[in-house]
Simulated assay, not measured.
Amino acid sequence: MGWLAAGDGYEVALMEGRVAARATTGRAAGRQLKSLPKALREHPEVDRLRRLAEWLDRHGAACVRQVDAWMVSSLPVPTGLLAEVWPDEAWQAALRDLAVVGDDPDEVGFLRDATDSGELRVVNLDGETVRLSPETVTLPHPVLLPDLDELREFAAELGVTQRVEQIHRATWRKPDDLAAGATEVTEFAGATFASRFGLAARATALGYRVSGGYATCAARDGGRTAEAALWIGEPYWEGDAEPGNLTWQGPDGRSLPLREVGPVAWSEGMRMAAALYAGRRIEEEKSQ
């Protein structure tokens, strides 16, 4: 965005998310000022730029949420759609360097560009930039990526930075020895929080949905959606909060046996419970 006239002797522009000013007259002409002059703080152009900056922040956050939802859902995303949104800097920031898979499920690459013709340019694990033009791609959840540790090492060599947490996302593998008929994970129960309000606020800040007495997150495995739910207490409870056990439900509301929970839903549910558990109150041991 270019510089806009604002008042006598000044121009303003949006620079790195904030309103910047520069003088157009005098010895400082053409130089960006360290702070916004008092005379400009209530100027209409400055107000307009501030509102634009707020909108851009919201738009950027919305792009990240959508791309994260694509990854957690494991749904195919039309390549043409990626090409259409790529020129938008917010979409590009959310998508760039994500691991993508096209027609060959064993060929993983880091997304670097999307052309108007719907062609994707990715860096494969050989370090070569290749062109892909599948009808759709997936942005795999890391628990589904083969050789994840190797992929992480390669990403470090490339200097990959992801806006949407994917390859460095914390993952949990479902144990093979789960008891038949078991429906609850109990390892996060028993923690204590200062208040139910604080626990709910923590869940919301981490991006989880709070409904009634539960913190929840949904994920999709093989075309089936499952919702992980952790009891966090009655909404208006004023005392200490003690989360309950972690469970999963199917689309029909039926409680799922743990053996039926898919790998993505398992990992995401455990990730939510662990993130909330990390904020528990820890009693310091008294010195003898």
Score class of each variant (00 low, 15 high):
7 G>I: 02
11 E>P: 00
12 V>Q: 01
15 M>G: 06
16 E>P: 04
23 A>S: 04
32 Q>K: 08
35 S>N: 03
38 K>R: 15
42 E>L: 09
43 H>W: 05
44 P>T: 04
52 L>H: 12
56 L>M: 15
57 D>P: 12
58 R>W: 12
75 L>S: 05
80 G>F: 14
81 L>D: 09
85 V>A: 04
87 P>Q: 00
92 Q>E: 09
97 D>H: 13
100 V>S: 01
106 D>R: 03
112 R>S: 01
119 E>I: 06
119 E>P: 00
120 L>V: 05
122 V>K: 03
127 G>F: 05
129 T>C: 09
129 T>I: 13
134 P>C: 00
134 P>S: 03
136 T>I: 07
136 T>C: 07
142 P>I: 13
143 V>T: 09
148 L>Q: 00
149 D>Q: 13
154 F>E: 09
154 F>P: 09
157 E>Q: 08
161 T>N: 13
161 T>D: 07
163 R>T: 01
164 V>T: 08
172 W>P: 02
176 D>P: 06
181 G>D: 06
187 E>Y: 08
190 G>C: 08
205 A>N: 09
209 R>A: 15
212 G>F: 10
214 Y>D: 10
218 A>I: 12
222 G>C: 03
229 A>Q: 02
241 A>V: 02
249 Q>R: 14
252 D>C: 03
263 P>H: 03
263 P>Q: 12
267 S>G: 00
269 G>Q: 01
272 M>T: 02
277 Y>H: 15
278 A>S: 10
